[in-house]
Amino acid sequence: MLVGQQQRLQEDIREIVAQHGHDRSALIPVLQELQKRHTTVSDFAMQVVADELGIHPAEVYGVTSFYAFLRQPTKGRFVFRLCRTISCELGGKSRVARQLENDLGIAFGETTGDGRFGLEWASCLGMCDQGPALLVNDRVYTRVTPEQVHQIIDECKSTFGAHARQAAHS
């Protein structure tokens, strides 16, 4: 990372910590906000967070790696999380999964080369009466069919312009 970028990240983290406070209980909210702004929590970022909260970086790593939504293996601006739990399985999630892989051109656990899309599994999304369910960042899609996958991806692409950051998190 360039020094300028590092500095900006550092300032960003200080700003987030100032908002949430320096208490240990602020750690997860801080990491969540950081991830929202930067799509991932880098090793360098973990170090800065640790310094700001006065804890060891290993503690920050321990927490980040524990939670599925923090340790996410992918780094896309749009993270696709397909529910793999039983009701969505009964509802036909396997074919939606296959079509997601086809239309995004990546496997589960991967990020597209342009950094736009990540594809992951999720445990029960709580949409069991309307499965298969798919969470794209903060947005939930229900009763997803294989043929709709392409349309959902297009919706993301159309918001990935000048207002991408805002749209991605709304």
Binding site: A26, L27, Q32, A68, F69, L70, A122, C124
Partner: peptide, 18 residues
């Protein structure tokens, strides 16, 4: 932050505490 076990009340408290 995406962990089923955090529904268990003492795990939930650990999570609240960071």
């Amino acid at each position: 932050a995406g962990a089923y076990v955090c529904g268990e009340e003492t795990a939930l408290i650990e999570s609240l505490e960071g």
